[in-house]
Design a protein around this nucleic acid. Structure first.
Lengths: 132, 132
DNA sequence: ATGGAATAGGGGTATATACCCGCGTCATGG
DNA sequence: CCATGACGCGGGTATATACCCCTATTCCAT
């Protein structure tokens, strides 16, 4: 009758963990979502908004707006490519430095989560992405 | 070295499941978040914004704005109590009907999730709220 | 070569969320 | 009985997210 709302549980867990990661990353003025974007741009070197959206499995317009924030903070810049429709994104020098400084903070958050949750939960969470 | 970002996994899982619940609830024009609010107001009968925020474990200002949406949709209304600072929320008749119609849709989403995830994952997710 | 389809992106609108600040109200200690 | 502090809430600002529509560009088939 009263099974817990799985959606609510996951949304709450996502909010709580996001707060933990954001708290760690606040030292370099990044949010977890921004860190993830910087990481993907760093890995790719250059990529378009649509490619980044596909990598993140997020809506293209969401990525477009999130990238605007990164551009305002001078972490990412656009470079033209042959195609007049697209613009390739890449990290600025500031972005590279900020990302490098953020990595150990992110790692600390990871470690905190690993210390908080039990191994079964870690395993279950890791398998979620494949199941949904 | 490259452990997956637990925060990203949970955020993605929350987005995906929210989309599933929202798709089911779209039949009555509600989102999962709105459904949860209506459910809590329904259970409580009457309660203030701060009480609702505490129940949801969300920021008071967040609840205030989400309740404004419900009021615009004529699902929730404010009633004055003795205290001039507070206003008590309760469901409107429309809100009661909408919530009643939404319950089986929510249940269908629950069932879909139970069919998608394996029991271990369900257990792990359920235990998350206590751990975080 | 041209016209229609496909692609890339921006902008509008809406919701969900959090933090901070200020304002009004209440309650309580002198 | 009044001043101070506690409380409740709205509003400002910022981010994250999604859907829709429009425009510009490119590509491809005829």
């Amino acid at each position: 009758m009263d099974s817990p709302c799985y959606c609510d549980l996951l949304r709450t867990a996502a909010r709580k963990t996001t707060a933990i990661y954001d708290r760690h990353l606040a030292g370099v003025g990044l949010t977890l979502a921004q860190y993830k974007l910087l990481k993907k741009v760093d890995r790719a070197g250059k990529l378009s908004i649509s490619e980044l959206a596909a990598l993140c499995d997020l809506d293209r317009s969401t990525i477009g707006r999130n990238v605007q924030v990164l551009e305002r903070h001078d972490l990412v810049e656009e470079t033209s490519c042959g195609d007049g429709r697209r613009c390739m994104l890449r990290l600025t020098e500031t972005g590279r430095q900020r990302f490098a400084a953020a990595v150990p903070l992110w790692q600390a958050a990871q470690t905190e989560i690993e210390a908080t949750l039990n191994p079964d939960q870690i395993t279950a969470i890791t398998a979620l992405s494949g199941a949904l």
